[in-house]
Design a protein around this nucleic acid. Structure first.
Lengths: 377, 377
DNA sequence: TTGTAGGCGTTATCAG
DNA sequence: CTGATAACGCCTACAA
């Protein structure tokens, strides 16, 4: 079927719908030129996406007017705005972010890097929410293998992200590359002393201090610590916080085993700690997941009661640790506050790249659960 | 300090490094023209990012040669390739994906949509891994509020993603918009009968059937079912699978309560189910999280033993359900296979948009844990 | 195999 | 306030 006519006819809504196939526009040289007949059956003519140019022709204004209309803060007369918006709506026009990025040098894209270890599962969701509020989109990178980090850095650069939030460790070289390229970077819970590496974190040492104090006050004296991997910065900070506080309180040096932040790792660590002659009566774990593993090992394999025979504390505040069967005594990281701060800080740096490097540290929240004894033995 | 000289001098690595500030290149009209003197102190001249043009000039070849060199499958002589790659490396050049997208109409971006409910936490990571293998990047959208879905659809269209993987429910209208715009879509565990909505899923009914059979074989006859929200497609399919199999086996109709897929919801549901005179002796939950809630409620609040007094089964196979304290009898979803299939299917559709709509259904894997009785009572 | 020229869809700049 | 014109950085014919 063919419909022939001068361009004016296109203003009729019925014909518009026949002209448009879904939200796809007919090629400009057949559809847009007012002096040419319009043939629908020409298959080659179909398939182009609606551009600001199509909208402009359709509304009878210039292309720049359309552009201004979709750019917040540009001055357009009310009459023109309604006319253009109606045309855009009719044609299903949405500005092409890619073309915009090319010229504005702003992608509104934030790269978020997480490693599969040590990830608070809903952290990404919370970040995403805060970014939505600011009109930012999230380019997501997971690090499974070591090589992934380099690939991520390369890709996020190619996509010209405006900034990076990393909940994974990066090498000095990788940080340097970002710095040289002028991409603002905010770490979550990784406080590097590298120039230009901003960070948001939880005060691990403080939190561990609270836990230790509570345990000591309850009369514990033989401590076992289940740390994370030796290479983990987070684990090191928590371990240091616990050890320092024990020393400050005049306690005997704790028995320390390193594990891997997993449930199975926690069970193994508990087994190791309790294998000797004088087993500890208080176990301090570098995260909740391992603490849960310790509790299960104690109850199910070692026939120990928690907290009567042994107290177990964790760190993180993740949901399963608070289930009725565990009710972990732990320190909850203020995930929401940290996520918000990370986005705030990143946006600030994007807007003013010369800003001084900053580290923001948030206190956790002590959760007095039921996995640690609270009265003197 | 000024360094003046003809362009040839720039080939000296030392000067190159002075010319480049980090990985940022001097403006072309001062740095690239061979006949112009180079002034470093001109502040305005600094700040441009290295482009293929800079590399071309630096290597003494044409810009298109550089482009070809970075496009897999284009023919470039070995001599030229090494020359260009060396120059690119020296200047820290990486192609600008944005400019490439604009012309190729391929963004290599896949939108992944998840809702905060019903998300397997590491599903995103697994997806990410499969996408990396194919050179795809992940644009991440979380749906918290209802309005978020529309925003996500709008954004992913503006960024011209090549395809969408959704683990969240979308409205018919939203699906239609994607279809009209020619964006391939694959659902995870949402089997819609909407044209153009491809999907990958787990066979919920089959899995529930296995569980029911096992429970019946163990002598259970009074069934309680903890379903998810009435609106949830997944919940409906699992509920239907369980109810149908009970009927087929000639069992009495089960008592059904609806909950919200959460731990607390599971506990509440268990309380509700066991409040009546004849409490069920087998509880079938629409997911593992609620099953864990049921077990805790049974043990901690109702003083019932699991599985001696009551059997509890779940669905999903999520990690905490397999911890020693629970050892859930459940059906594990083949998350890895589903993720891989989703990416495969999406890529296939991107490459051939005319492909027929397809649904791929994977069988789960029965995990015979310890939360369900296995011998006759 | 290599270089030249045109265009992708937008925003920015500057006249009117 | 509005419209013409030039970038933005790259890919892709096409010609050499």
């Amino acid at each position: 079927m063919q419909s022939r006519g001068a361009f004016q006819v296109i203003f009729d809504a019925g014909i518009v719908h026949r002209l448009c196939y879904g939200l796809v526009m007919i090629k400009p040289d057949t559809a847009v030129r007012a002096d040419l007949p319009v043939t629908l059956t020409d298959a080659q003519a179909i398939g182009r996406i609606v551009t600001s140019y199509d909208v402009a022709k359709f509304a009878g204004v210039s292309q720049s007017a359309v552009s201004r209309c979709f750019t917040p803060g540009k001055s357009v007369s009310e009459r023109m705005r309604t006319k253009i918006l109606r045309a855009a709506n009719e044609l299903g026009y949405q500005p092409n972010a890619i073309a915009r990025m090319l010229i504005t040098k702003r992608s509104n894209l934030i790269a978020v890097i997480v490693s599969n270890l040590s990830v608070n599962p809903d952290f990404t969701s919370i970040l995403s929410q805060h970014m939505i509020e600011r009109g930012l989109n999230l380019l997501f990178f997971t690090l499974d293998q070591d090589a992934d980090a380099d690939r991520a850095i390369e890709q996020l650069w190619q996509y010209r992200v405006d900034g990076v939030i990393s909940a994974a460790e990066l090498s000095i070289d990788q940080i340097r590359v970002l710095r040289e390229r002028g991409i603002p970077l905010v770490f979550i819970n990784r406080l590097y002393d590298v120039m230009g590496a901003n960070s948001v974190g939880c005060d691990h040492a403080e939190g561990e201090g609270w836990l230790i104090e509570k345990l000591v006050a309850a009369g514990h004296s033989r401590f076992g610590i289940v740390a994370g991997p030796e290479a983990s910065v987070v684990s090191r900070m928590r371990l240091r916080g616990a050890v320092d506080r024990l020393e400050a309180l005049g306690c005997a040096a704790p028995q320390v085993v390193h594990s891997d932040f997993t449930y199975a790792g926690g069970r193994g660590a508990m087994r190791a700690l309790c294998g000797g002659k004088k087993r500890p009566d208080a176990i301090v774990c570098a995260n909740d997941l391992m603490a849960v593993g310790c509790i299960d090992e104690a109850r199910l394999a070692l026939s120990l009661k928690v907290p009567e025979d042994v107290s177990v504390v964790g760190f993180d505040g993740f949901a399963p640790g608070q289930w009725g069967g565990y009710r972990l005594t732990t320190v909850r990281q203020p995930v929401a506050a940290m996520a918000r701060a990370a986005v705030d800080m990143l946006v600030a740096r994007i807007e003013d790249p010369s800003m001084a490097t900053e580290k923001r540290v948030f206190s956790g929240e002590l959760i007095e659960g039921g996995s640690a004894r609270s009265e003197l033995a």
